[in-house]
Amino acid sequence: MSELVISNLHVEVETESGPKEILKGVNLTVASGEVHAIMGPNGSGKSTLAYSIAGHPKYTITSGSVKLDGVELSTLSVDQRAKAGLFLAMQYPIEVPGVSVANFLRTAKTALSGEAPKVRTWVKDVNAALEKVGLDGTFAARSLNEGFSGGEKKRNEIAQLELLAPKFAILDETDSGLDIDALRIVSEGVNRFTAPGDRGVLLITHYTRILNYIKPDFVHVFVDGRIVEEGGAELADQLEIDGYDKFVKAAKVDA
Protein backbone atom coordinates (compact mmCIF):
# COMPACT_ATOMS: atom_id res chain seq x y z
CA MET A 1 0.00 0.00 0.00
CA SER A 2 1.57 3.26 -1.19
CA GLU A 3 0.52 6.85 -0.82
CA LEU A 4 1.21 10.09 -2.62
CA VAL A 5 0.39 12.91 -0.23
CA ILE A 6 0.31 16.52 -1.41
CA SER A 7 -0.06 18.99 1.46
CA ASN A 8 -0.66 22.71 1.23
CA LEU A 9 1.49 22.94 -1.89
CA HIS A 10 2.46 26.44 -3.03
CA VAL A 11 4.38 26.83 -6.27
CA GLU A 12 5.83 29.86 -8.07
CA VAL A 13 7.05 30.39 -11.58
CA GLU A 14 9.51 33.07 -12.67
CA THR A 15 7.96 35.59 -15.08
CA GLU A 16 9.20 38.78 -16.70
CA SER A 17 7.49 40.78 -13.97
CA GLY A 18 8.91 38.68 -11.14
CA PRO A 19 7.79 35.47 -9.46
CA LYS A 20 4.14 34.53 -9.82
CA GLU A 21 2.29 32.12 -7.57
CA ILE A 22 0.48 29.45 -9.58
CA LEU A 23 -0.40 26.83 -6.98
CA LYS A 24 -2.05 28.31 -3.91
CA GLY A 25 -2.28 25.47 -1.42
CA VAL A 26 -3.07 22.11 -2.98
CA ASN A 27 -4.11 19.23 -0.73
CA LEU A 28 -4.55 15.79 -2.21
CA THR A 29 -3.88 12.19 -1.23
CA VAL A 30 -3.68 9.45 -3.82
CA ALA A 31 -3.50 5.90 -2.48
CA SER A 32 -2.32 2.99 -4.60
CA GLY A 33 -5.19 1.35 -6.39
CA GLU A 34 -6.93 4.70 -6.88
CA VAL A 35 -7.47 6.82 -9.97
CA HIS A 36 -7.92 10.53 -9.30
CA ALA A 37 -9.00 12.84 -12.07
CA ILE A 38 -8.02 16.50 -11.84
CA MET A 39 -10.21 18.63 -14.05
CA GLY A 40 -10.10 22.31 -14.61
CA PRO A 41 -10.14 25.13 -17.15
CA ASN A 42 -7.07 26.24 -19.09
CA GLY A 43 -4.62 28.22 -17.00
CA SER A 44 -5.88 26.86 -13.68
CA GLY A 45 -2.46 25.38 -12.82
CA LYS A 46 -3.14 21.70 -13.55
CA SER A 47 0.06 21.21 -15.53
CA THR A 48 2.04 23.21 -12.98
CA LEU A 49 0.93 20.67 -10.39
CA ALA A 50 2.21 17.83 -12.58
CA TYR A 51 5.54 19.46 -13.40
CA SER A 52 6.29 20.72 -9.91
CA ILE A 53 5.72 17.25 -8.43
CA ALA A 54 8.11 15.82 -11.05
CA GLY A 55 10.70 18.53 -10.30
CA HIS A 56 10.80 20.67 -13.43
CA PRO A 57 13.41 23.43 -12.86
CA LYS A 58 11.01 26.14 -14.05
CA TYR A 59 8.82 25.74 -10.95
CA THR A 60 9.73 26.53 -7.37
CA ILE A 61 7.93 24.97 -4.44
CA THR A 62 7.72 27.79 -1.91
CA SER A 63 5.87 25.89 0.81
CA GLY A 64 4.03 22.66 1.48
CA SER A 65 5.15 19.16 0.74
CA VAL A 66 4.80 16.20 -1.61
CA LYS A 67 5.48 12.85 -0.01
CA LEU A 68 5.63 9.45 -1.64
CA ASP A 69 5.41 6.73 1.03
CA GLY A 70 6.67 9.24 3.56
CA VAL A 71 9.65 10.36 1.44
CA GLU A 72 9.69 14.11 0.77
CA LEU A 73 9.99 14.46 -3.01
CA SER A 74 10.57 18.22 -3.19
CA THR A 75 14.14 17.89 -1.88
CA LEU A 76 15.01 15.13 -4.36
CA SER A 77 16.45 15.60 -7.85
CA VAL A 78 14.26 14.86 -10.87
CA ASP A 79 15.78 11.42 -11.41
CA GLN A 80 15.62 10.56 -7.71
CA ARG A 81 11.90 11.28 -7.76
CA ALA A 82 11.53 8.81 -10.62
CA LYS A 83 13.52 6.26 -8.63
CA ALA A 84 11.17 6.84 -5.70
CA GLY A 85 8.38 5.59 -7.97
CA LEU A 86 7.00 8.63 -9.76
CA PHE A 87 6.24 8.87 -13.48
CA LEU A 88 5.02 11.86 -15.46
CA ALA A 89 3.40 11.28 -18.86
CA MET A 90 3.87 14.64 -20.52
CA GLN A 91 1.45 16.68 -22.53
CA TYR A 92 4.21 17.51 -25.01
CA PRO A 93 6.85 14.77 -24.87
CA ILE A 94 10.27 16.13 -25.77
CA GLU A 95 12.21 15.15 -28.89
CA VAL A 96 15.74 13.91 -28.25
CA PRO A 97 17.54 13.55 -31.60
CA GLY A 98 20.03 10.73 -31.97
CA VAL A 99 18.87 8.84 -28.87
CA SER A 100 16.94 5.76 -29.94
CA VAL A 101 13.79 4.72 -28.13
CA ALA A 102 15.43 1.35 -27.37
CA ASN A 103 18.58 2.94 -25.93
CA PHE A 104 16.55 5.43 -23.91
CA LEU A 105 14.30 2.74 -22.44
CA ARG A 106 17.21 0.46 -21.57
CA THR A 107 19.09 3.34 -19.91
CA ALA A 108 16.00 4.36 -17.93
CA LYS A 109 15.19 0.80 -16.86
CA THR A 110 18.81 0.27 -15.80
CA ALA A 111 18.81 3.49 -13.81
CA LEU A 112 15.52 2.70 -12.10
CA SER A 113 16.23 -0.92 -11.19
CA GLY A 114 19.95 -0.56 -10.55
CA GLU A 115 20.86 -3.29 -13.02
CA ALA A 116 20.74 -3.73 -16.75
CA PRO A 117 17.68 -5.66 -17.96
CA LYS A 118 18.32 -9.10 -19.46
CA VAL A 119 18.97 -8.53 -23.13
CA ARG A 120 16.78 -11.30 -24.54
CA THR A 121 13.64 -10.75 -22.52
CA TRP A 122 14.02 -6.98 -22.58
CA VAL A 123 13.92 -6.67 -26.35
CA LYS A 124 10.78 -8.79 -26.35
CA ASP A 125 9.26 -6.69 -23.57
CA VAL A 126 9.99 -3.45 -25.43
CA ASN A 127 8.52 -4.71 -28.67
CA ALA A 128 5.46 -6.05 -26.86
CA ALA A 129 4.89 -2.76 -25.01
CA LEU A 130 5.20 -0.77 -28.25
CA GLU A 131 2.90 -3.16 -30.06
CA LYS A 132 0.25 -2.89 -27.34
CA VAL A 133 -0.02 0.84 -27.99
CA GLY A 134 -0.04 0.35 -31.74
CA LEU A 135 3.58 1.34 -32.46
CA ASP A 136 5.36 -1.15 -34.71
CA GLY A 137 8.84 -2.49 -33.99
CA THR A 138 10.58 0.16 -36.13
CA PHE A 139 9.87 2.75 -33.44
CA ALA A 140 12.46 1.13 -31.13
CA ALA A 141 15.23 2.18 -33.52
CA ARG A 142 13.94 5.71 -34.12
CA SER A 143 15.15 8.80 -32.32
CA LEU A 144 13.10 9.43 -29.20
CA ASN A 145 9.91 11.29 -30.18
CA GLU A 146 11.66 12.87 -33.18
CA GLY A 147 9.25 13.14 -36.07
CA PHE A 148 6.56 11.30 -34.12
CA SER A 149 3.02 12.55 -34.59
CA GLY A 150 1.27 13.94 -31.52
CA GLY A 151 -0.61 10.67 -31.09
CA GLU A 152 2.54 8.57 -31.48
CA LYS A 153 4.25 10.62 -28.77
CA LYS A 154 1.38 9.95 -26.36
CA ARG A 155 1.39 6.24 -27.18
CA ASN A 156 5.12 6.18 -26.54
CA GLU A 157 4.52 7.73 -23.10
CA ILE A 158 2.08 4.94 -22.28
CA ALA A 159 4.52 2.27 -23.52
CA GLN A 160 7.08 3.75 -21.10
CA LEU A 161 4.51 3.68 -18.32
CA GLU A 162 4.04 -0.03 -18.93
CA LEU A 163 7.77 -0.85 -19.14
CA LEU A 164 9.02 1.30 -16.28
CA ALA A 165 6.14 0.31 -13.97
CA PRO A 166 6.20 3.19 -11.45
CA LYS A 167 4.15 3.31 -8.24
CA PHE A 168 2.41 6.54 -9.20
CA ALA A 169 1.74 7.99 -12.61
CA ILE A 170 0.74 11.54 -13.35
CA LEU A 171 -0.84 11.82 -16.78
CA ASP A 172 -0.78 15.42 -17.93
CA GLU A 173 -3.51 15.91 -20.55
CA THR A 174 -2.54 12.65 -22.17
CA ASP A 175 -5.91 12.72 -23.94
CA SER A 176 -5.49 16.11 -25.60
CA GLY A 177 -5.16 15.97 -29.35
CA LEU A 178 -5.92 12.26 -29.62
CA ASP A 179 -8.36 10.86 -32.12
CA ILE A 180 -10.88 8.33 -30.88
CA ASP A 181 -8.78 5.26 -31.73
CA ALA A 182 -5.66 6.62 -30.07
CA LEU A 183 -7.70 7.68 -27.06
CA ARG A 184 -9.00 4.13 -26.65
CA ILE A 185 -5.52 2.60 -27.04
CA VAL A 186 -3.98 5.02 -24.55
CA SER A 187 -6.83 4.44 -22.07
CA GLU A 188 -6.43 0.67 -22.34
CA GLY A 189 -2.74 1.12 -21.54
CA VAL A 190 -3.58 3.11 -18.43
CA ASN A 191 -6.14 0.49 -17.37
CA ARG A 192 -3.53 -2.28 -17.82
CA PHE A 193 -1.20 -0.23 -15.64
CA THR A 194 -3.74 0.10 -12.83
CA ALA A 195 -5.10 -3.45 -13.14
CA PRO A 196 -2.75 -5.03 -10.56
CA GLY A 197 -4.37 -2.71 -8.01
CA ASP A 198 -1.19 -1.46 -6.36
CA ARG A 199 -0.55 1.63 -8.51
CA GLY A 200 -1.99 5.09 -8.26
CA VAL A 201 -2.92 7.49 -11.07
CA LEU A 202 -3.36 11.23 -11.12
CA LEU A 203 -5.16 11.94 -14.37
CA ILE A 204 -5.05 15.58 -15.39
CA THR A 205 -7.51 16.53 -18.07
CA HIS A 206 -9.54 19.36 -19.48
CA TYR A 207 -12.25 17.18 -20.99
CA THR A 208 -14.46 14.40 -19.63
CA ARG A 209 -14.00 12.37 -22.82
CA ILE A 210 -11.19 10.15 -21.47
CA LEU A 211 -13.29 9.36 -18.38
CA ASN A 212 -15.55 7.23 -20.59
CA TYR A 213 -12.59 4.86 -20.84
CA ILE A 214 -10.80 5.32 -17.54
CA LYS A 215 -13.14 5.26 -14.54
CA PRO A 216 -11.94 7.65 -11.85
CA ASP A 217 -12.50 6.87 -8.18
CA PHE A 218 -12.33 10.56 -7.35
CA VAL A 219 -12.79 13.74 -9.35
CA HIS A 220 -11.27 17.06 -8.23
CA VAL A 221 -12.15 20.38 -9.77
CA PHE A 222 -9.08 22.58 -10.06
CA VAL A 223 -9.50 26.36 -10.37
CA ASP A 224 -7.02 29.17 -9.78
CA GLY A 225 -4.28 27.02 -8.26
CA ARG A 226 -6.30 24.94 -5.84
CA ILE A 227 -8.89 22.21 -5.59
CA VAL A 228 -12.35 23.79 -5.22
CA GLU A 229 -14.62 20.78 -5.37
CA GLU A 230 -14.30 17.05 -4.90
CA GLY A 231 -16.53 14.11 -5.61
CA GLY A 232 -16.87 10.79 -7.33
CA ALA A 233 -17.23 10.02 -11.04
CA GLU A 234 -20.64 11.73 -11.03
CA LEU A 235 -18.90 15.11 -10.58
CA ALA A 236 -17.38 14.69 -14.02
CA ASP A 237 -20.83 14.10 -15.48
CA GLN A 238 -22.04 17.30 -13.89
CA LEU A 239 -19.03 19.19 -15.34
CA GLU A 240 -19.87 17.82 -18.76
CA ILE A 241 -23.29 19.47 -18.49
CA ASP A 242 -22.49 22.69 -16.61
CA GLY A 243 -18.87 23.37 -17.50
CA TYR A 244 -16.40 25.12 -15.21
CA ASP A 245 -18.18 28.51 -15.16
CA LYS A 246 -19.78 28.13 -11.76
CA PHE A 247 -16.44 27.27 -10.11
CA VAL A 248 -14.50 29.98 -11.93
CA LYS A 249 -17.00 32.63 -10.82
CA ALA A 250 -16.94 31.36 -7.25
CA ALA A 251 -13.13 31.45 -7.21
CA LYS A 252 -13.22 35.09 -8.39
CA VAL A 253 -15.56 36.04 -5.61
CA ASP A 254 -13.25 34.36 -3.07
CA ALA A 255 -10.17 36.08 -4.47
Partner: peptide, 18 residues
Protein backbone atom coordinates in the same frame (compact mmCIF):
# COMPACT_ATOMS: atom_id res chain seq x y z
CA UNK B 1 15.58 17.30 -22.99
CA UNK B 2 17.48 16.81 -19.75
CA UNK B 3 14.27 17.06 -17.72
CA UNK B 4 12.54 14.51 -19.89
CA UNK B 5 15.35 11.98 -19.62
CA UNK B 6 15.82 12.55 -15.91
CA UNK B 7 12.08 12.21 -15.26
CA UNK B 8 12.56 8.58 -16.35
CA UNK B 9 15.17 8.00 -13.66
CA UNK B 10 18.26 8.70 -15.78
CA UNK B 11 20.85 10.59 -13.67
CA UNK B 12 21.98 14.01 -14.87
CA UNK B 13 25.48 12.87 -15.99
CA UNK B 14 24.03 10.08 -18.01
CA UNK B 15 21.31 12.29 -19.47
CA UNK B 16 23.93 14.81 -20.64
CA UNK B 17 25.98 12.03 -22.12
CA UNK B 18 22.96 10.70 -24.03
Amino acid sequence: QLFYLRSRGIPEDEARRL
